[in-house]
Design a protein around this nucleic acid. Structure first.
Lengths: 102, 102
DNA sequence: CTAACATGCAACCATATGGTTGTAGATCAC
DNA sequence: GTGATCTACAACCATATGGTTGCATGTTAG
C-alpha cells in the first residue's frame, strides 16, 4: 500500500496512470509527452509498475503500458474504510447525545 | 494532491489518520502508540497536517489531532475520476465492437 | 514557585527519490 | 546486413525523507 500511494504522489506519474487507463501507450509515446528525458519517464513507469498501477505488454519492440484499475480500487477501498471509521465515530457521538437526551 | 498521497504513503501516518478519524488524540498519546521517538511521531503529524489530512486543536498544554475527512474525500474523488476514465474507455471499446458487428 | 509534562524546533545522519548522461541489447525498416 | 528506433540499465548527483538527539517554550500540578 505504501508503494501505491507513493507512486500516486507525483503529478507526472498520476498523468501516466490517467493516460494509460484511457488507452494503452508505449513507453516512448509517454516519454514524448513530458519535458524530461526518456530514462526519467521510464523510471516513472517502473515505479508505477512496481506499485501494480500499470502493467507492461511487449508488442514488437515496444512495451505497451496499461493502467491497472484493480490497484486503483485497492487504494479506493482503503480510503472508503477511513470514511467508514469517520462515520461510525459520528454514529457513536449521536448515540451518546441520544443517551444524554433521555 | 502530491502531498496528500505522499502523506498516505507511510504506514505510521496512515495509522495516525485512522486513529484520529475514529476520535481525536493528543500528539503524545499518538507518540506512545509507536516504537519511535516523540519527535519522529511529531514530524509525521506535521506531514499529515501539511497535507490537510489532520488538524490540530490546542487544548491546554496538549494539541489534539483530528483526522480531516474532507481531504480523504479529495483523494477519493481523484481515484473515482480514474475509474471513470477506465469505464469510458471500455464504453468506447464496446461501441467499436457494436459498430463492427453491424 | 517549582517540577514535571507536552510540544516545537533545529541540527545531524543514512537512505530514498527524481533527475541526468551514457552504454548496450532487441527489433524494425530498407 | 545495416542503420534507426525502442527499451533497459548503470553510474552519478542534488535534494527530500525519516529517523535520531538535544534544547527551548508553554502549561499544568502540587
Amino acid at each position: 500500500m505504501d508503494r501505491i500511494f507513493r507512486a500516486l504522489a507525483d503529478a507526472t506519474r498520476r498523468d501516466i496512470v490517467r493516460r494509460t487507463l484511457g488507452g494503452e501507450a508505449s513507453v516512448s509515446e509517454l516519454a514524448g509527452a513530458y519535458d524530461m528525458s526518456f530514462a526519467a519517464v521510464q523510471k516513472h513507469v517502473a515505479v508505477l509498475e512496481g506499485a501494480g498501477l500499470v502493467t507492461k505488454h511487449p508488442h514488437g519492440r515496444e512495451r505497451m503500458v496499461r493502467g491497472n484499475l484493480h490497484t486503483i480500487q485497492r487504494a479506493q477501498a482503503l480510503l472508503e474504510r477511513y470514511e467508514q471509521i469517520w462515520r461510525s465515530r459520528i454514529d457513536r457521538l449521536d448515540e451518546l447525545l441520544a443517551d444524554t437526551g433521555e
